[in-house]
Amino acid sequence: MNKETTKAEIYATLTKMAEASGLKNTSMFFIDPSTLPEAAKPEAVTEAELFNEALSSLRAMVSGEVRTDPVRLEAIRYQLENADYLSENAKRAD
């Protein structure tokens, strides 16, 4: 059986290990995840949105509106790869 470990389980394990090694105040080293605010879930991005964003970036570079630096090109490549990945997963799901 494959079970995902939760943050609370990791915290409990770490605090027990620290206490077993003689530390009395484990809060100096570990933060209880139940005291943290809930993280916002990222918005789902569609294949078309990733592709359109990458395409508009490429158009801006071709027209000279944006300078072509390696970091920008890497970001565009990443967007296109993610669009391809989403496209392949959508095809498999159908």
Rank of each mutant, 00 (worst) to 15 (best):
N2M: 15
E4S: 09
E4Y: 15
E4Q: 13
T5M: 12
T6R: 15
T6Y: 11
K7I: 00
K7R: 15
A8P: 07
A8S: 07
I10V: 00
I10G: 00
A12L: 08
T13P: 00
T13D: 01
T13C: 01
L14H: 10
L14C: 06
L14W: 06
K16L: 01
M17V: 11
M17K: 13
A18Q: 03
A18D: 01
A18F: 04
E19S: 11
A20T: 05
A20V: 04
S21A: 07
S21V: 08
G22W: 05
G22F: 02
L23N: 04
L23F: 03
L23H: 03
K24F: 02
K24Q: 12
K24P: 03
N25S: 02
N25Y: 03
N25D: 06
S27V: 05
M28V: 02
F29V: 03
F30N: 02
F30V: 15
I31N: 01
I31W: 00
D32V: 07
P33A: 08
S34T: 06
L36E: 04
L36R: 11
P37W: 07
P37R: 08
E38F: 12
E38L: 14
E38V: 10
A40C: 09
A40F: 09
A40R: 12
K41Q: 14
K41V: 02
K41N: 08
P42H: 11
P42N: 13
P42L: 12
E43A: 15
A44N: 06
V45E: 14
T46M: 06
E47W: 04
A48L: 14
E49V: 05
E49N: 11
L50S: 06
L50T: 04
L50V: 08
F51G: 00
F51Y: 10
F51E: 02
E53K: 10
E53V: 09
A54G: 04
L55H: 05
S56D: 10
S57Q: 14
L58F: 06
L58G: 03
A60I: 03
A60R: 10
A60D: 04
A60N: 07
M61I: 03
V62A: 06
V62C: 04
S63G: 02
S63E: 14
E65A: 07
V66I: 14
V66Q: 14
R67P: 07
R67G: 06
T68I: 11
D69Y: 09
D69H: 02
D69E: 10
D69Q: 01
P70S: 14
V71H: 15
V71G: 03
V71E: 15
R72F: 00
L73E: 03
L73C: 06
L73S: 02
E74G: 12
E74S: 15
I76K: 03
I76F: 01
R77C: 01
Y78W: 13
Y78E: 12
Y78Q: 11
Q79E: 11
Q79G: 08
L80K: 03
E81Q: 09
E81G: 00
A83R: 06
Y85K: 15
Y85E: 09
Y85M: 11
L86Y: 07
L86R: 12
S87T: 05
E88R: 14
N89V: 14
N89Y: 14
A90K: 13
K91T: 11
R92E: 02
A93Q: 09
A93E: 13
D94M: 05
